[in-house]
Amino acid sequence: MKRTLILAATVSYIALLVLLGISYYVGLRQVAGWPAKGMKEASAKELSRVERDLKTLGRRMDSLQPRGLYIVIDTGANRLYLKKGDRVVREAVVSCGSGDVLEDPGGKRKWIFDTPRGEFSVKSKITNPYWVKPDWAFIEEGEPIPKNPKERLEAGTLGDYALGFGSGYFIHGTLYTRLLGRNVTHGCVRVGDSDLKEIFRTVPVGAKIFIF
């Protein structure tokens, strides 16, 4: 019985080794297939054409990049970078979207408080902005949604300046400076007073904003 078990274990072990050997042989043959399929070598004539195409494409890529000042926002690190070319002109600690979810008790609407990502541009610059409270602000506080638009206005909440970048999203000031560096907003980007003042002063309408 003991001998049979030892024999069975040995056979299994050898079978596993053989299987592994075949597996590695097949796998290494696949890897050795570099360069990738369909990647034939170019002739000398083709090579000069390829090099010319590379230069043209490189120039086209460069033309896509913004001229002048632009803003980059890292929503995970809660950092804003004011940049010109490759150079960082100013770095600021900010607050981005909390990622929280709010559902309308009526069940018809749902909001996810993320800061949007991608390419945007500064669409408006406002001094002493008023916050026009959207429906979710009332729902979140458990208050009825007002019928009079004037009841939606709130002064001071957004700080001294705001830069709109579309769909109701702003880069604005904050009363809650101790929360800078944390994800606490409803999607807007909150900035400290001195950084906001500098951004507002230097960034023109139309400047690009890249958020990731």
Binding site: M39, A42, V50, M61
Partner: peptide
């Protein structure tokens, strides 16, 4: 290898563009 690399670079840059 230079020729292959050039073609690969072009393919890569084209995909990135």
């Amino acid at each position: 290898s230079g020729r292959v690399e050039a073609r690969e670079s072009l393919r890569s840059l084209d995909a990135e563009y």
